[in-house]
Amino acid sequence: MLEIKNLHASVVDIDDSEILRGIDLTVNKGEVHAIMGPNGSGKSTLVNVLMGRFDYEVTAGDILVNNESILALRPDQRAHLGMFLAFQYPAEIPGVRPWQFLKAALDSKAEANGEEKMSVRTFSKLFDEKVEAVGINPNLVKRSLNEGFSGGEKKRNEMLQLEVLKPTLAVLDETDSGLDVDALRIVAEGVNSMRSPERSFIVVTHYQRLLNYITPDVVHILVNGKIVKAGGAELALEVEKNGYKSYLAAAGANA
């Protein structure tokens, strides 16, 4: 599904700003991978580079999806391939209704893949169903996209999009340490209900807490732009107990 090979990336137009320093990671179909790391380890950069954000530049290595390099693809083209990023802080778009936005997203994906667009009626039905399933206040989705949404409502809205767009590779950016229990549960429910042999997940998180709700197949520890250790779900518990200190020391970074 996804192969990241010796990935190096820096911030565009800034010298000596390398953040990712050689990442290797393979995610097979149907697997859930967790990436954990301390602040400043490159977690956010990794998810943004995966989705093709323009502020970052890949200076070496490659990212393959279904054996093809996606480095030359724009974010929209990556989305059309089945990639999805659940944002930590989704942007607010005044005047754009979530319904309208999601229909446009679905249409552009269908168009790019030569599929028929979903009819308004079918979409409306699907939308209403999913709104109820993820527990968003139906009045909220009649307003502007993410504008005035609480943190939990934004998470629910991201999960709504995940469920409607049905990506094959979903990356969840939960790098923030400030997620409350409610938000954690929403994200976990979204992942667990969507887990399938055809769909892979990368869950990026600072704390182990989220992994109480989602059981990953593999846990990776990201420190100083490199994956320093990988293991099973028990690795997350070890980090919870001992922190990142020993990894930071080994990577030669400042704690």
Binding site: R74, D76, H80, E92, P94, G95, V96, A104, A105, L165
Partner: peptide
């Protein structure tokens, strides 16, 4: 850039994303 990236990450082209942001703003 955050708005553009958000919409593009969902599959909208840069032009569609601009248009959606601008018409939303004018609503």
């Amino acid at each position: 850039d955050d708005q553009l990236f958000y919409l593009m990450a969902r599959g909208l082209s840069e032009e569609e994303a601009h248009h959606m942001i601008i018409t939303g703003w004018s609503r």
